[in-house]
Design a protein around this nucleic acid. Structure first.
Lengths: 171, 171
DNA sequence: GGCGGCATGTAAATGGTTACATGATTAC
DNA sequence: GTAATCATGTAACCATTTACATGCCGCC
């Protein structure tokens, strides 16, 4: 007897959707989409074309259940986590292989090639970046916990970048 | 008279290809692909299906030129940067909007939801991550400069994560 | 003589973006 | 009454991945 394992592993977007619902409770696809749209990373674009079909897929594979919560003629379908969805979420959340990954960071990529810029151009670019990093704001209506986490991440990034710069400027 | 602007902006992969060639001199598509495959980020997979057509595209749009460098019956086509390629590269490299972006980081994503894990599970996951971060190695045959940059980035990440953990573990 | 690395490429599938379309409801 | 927001969705397109296919060269 073969056990149906459905999708082998969740994509980052799928995992993040499940995690968001686990965190905030049942939500509409629209609300999920807005959460991602508010992210400080442009890689989480929160496009309808990604979110709606994705959540439908997650329901079909039994990780989400939806109920019609329309209070008027306007449609409103709320998705909640199933037990199996909770299980998969925990697997995704604690996936060490995924977590230990340099990720995809346009600034880190550029630092690797900063020596290709002449000193003047580099200084201007670095100045602009250094000024912009602390200005990165957390998504509006973020919880105090998320706000704190964001501030913390920004501070770490700032430290990293200015130390990197100190290293490079010496040359 | 209309000025042909061809592709509006380079993708991250396109920019990184141009930068790699600018850095190392003329290379084959195969060599480029291997550089990306060696990256510590799984997002730079360096697949032939991405690299070969991409470099052909960059040549068609005039950012690269290729010459046949076959020394035997085995084919070998080396791509070099054109002046226009150099220009576009500099624009890409100093794109502040791109550089100031939280990027795509599976670990950062997971930290945002770490409170969904029970204390025991969280500790195990964090332990594994904290142990794995310093073990992240730079690509083999990296230049001393790249090696240094990588070590520096790893150290910053380690600091960030352990401080984040200190913040969370208090709860 | 065979295996691993160099070198080129393509076809199909995936996962996501952009842009569009529709309509209900709320706030001004 | 009209603009913004809530809410749902789809179609076309895009960059990239996975998997495959081919063949040459050097080394053991």
């Amino acid at each position: 007897m073969k056990i149906e394992s459905s999708n082998p592993t969740l994509t980052e977007l799928e995992g993040a959707v499940l995690a968001t619902i686990a965190d905030r409770g049942p939500m509409t696809a629209y609300a999920i989409k807005e959460v991602f749209r508010a992210s400080p990373s442009s890689f989480w674009s929160g496009s309808a074309g990604a979110v709606y079909p994705l959540m439908k897929r997650l329901e079909v594979s039994g990780l989400l259940v939806s109920r019609d919560e329309s209070a008027s003629r306007r449609p409103k379908r709320e998705f909640a986590l199933t037990d199996s969805g909770q299980d998969k979420l925990l697997v995704w959340l604690t996936d060490v292989e995924r977590a230990v990954n340099a990720g995809y960071d346009p600034l880190r990529t550029r630092t690797q090639f900063s020596h290709l810029l002449d000193a003047d151009c580099r200084r201007r670019f670095f100045d602009a970046v250094e000024q912009a990093i602390p200005a990165m704001s957390a998504p509006p209506q973020a919880s105090p916990r998320l706000e704190k986490l964001h501030a913390f991440w920004v501070a770490a990034r700032q430290t990293w970048f200015s130390r990197f710069r100190g290293l490079v400027d010496k040359d």
